[in-house]
Design a protein around this nucleic acid. Sequence first.
DNA 1: GCGTTCTCTTGAACGAGTCAAGAACTGGGC
DNA 2: GCCCAGTTCTTGACTCGTTCAAGAGAACGC
Lengths: 159, 159
Amino acid sequence: MPDAADLERALRAAGLRVTRPRLAVLDAVHAHPHVDTEALIGAARARLGAVSHQAVYDVLRVLTDTGLVRRIQPQGSVARYEARVGDNHHHLVCRSCGAISDVDCATGQAPCLTPSVDGGFLVDEAEVVYWGRCRSCATARTAPAPPDPDGSTAQRGTP
Amino acid sequence: MPDAADLERALRAAGLRVTRPRLAVLDAVHAHPHVDTEALIGAARARLGAVSHQAVYDVLRVLTDTGLVRRIQPQGSVARYEARVGDNHHHLVCRSCGAISDVDCATGQAPCLTPSVDGGFLVDEAEVVYWGRCRSCATARTAPAPPDPDGSTAQRGTP
DNA sequence: GCGTTCTCTTGAACGAGTCAAGAACTGGGC
DNA sequence: GCCCAGTTCTTGACTCGTTCAAGAGAACGC
């Protein structure tokens, strides 16, 4: 977990001005990977007291554009954000509770997979989403477990 | 391209009643893979004259639930549907124009990839999306080409 | 042909996200 | 330390894709 100074450095390195909403959102993304926009708005408000949802949306777009955070959006889910960027990792998604966990990529560089015949496409990234059931939902099939927004079950894998 | 009798048989085999909207939507999905709901509503109306958008949404949900069509939704795109089901193929998506093409899966069965360490997840499917630029957009980087809703550039690949 | 059950129509509503205009703030130069 | 230009945030409305609800209509089994 980077501290405030690290986050500030990261913003400046990306050529962005350092503002309280940006620090709050960036901190929240680091603290709670894979959470949705609404939760980030809540986290930012918990830190600052009051931030407009528009500000958070703007901040998230800027951070995504500059590569400081990554936006992911599994089917059927709203947009989620994570601060782990640049290592081309993949995700495990629970069909039952929506929990998302990181899976390391074997190569760590995009694209880690390439179609043997690509029909003229210039492929620059292979996004892999593993669908299944998380440990909690697999064991307790009756009552879905709450999401695991911290991705604490993240493990390495292939590709 | 299956004819009306084939589509009707498919509906009955899935335990569904045969209605004109269902035939029209199923036909449209076969004729135009990877198109969005709005386009399917248009295609259904072209066949039937008038269908409510709600009917098309309902039909698409039923067809998806019974496995007659597959719903795909790349990041940043609305829901799209295709009639190619059961072979666990993947998709190439153009970042520029949004065109989607099919890519055969090497194994043809889910999951074709498995994370070596899954953190307790029971993985049943690995969804792979290859991001890049289609032939048209790669050659003409200035003006994005219109989408390729037929996926005519589909080729086989790995995984 | 009849009745049950499922499906479609109509109309409204919801949630996520975007747009627009103006106020407030940040950072660099003085 | 102060000022100003440019960027960022606030407020409020809006769009778009999708879903919900209730009742009318159609398909299927008998």
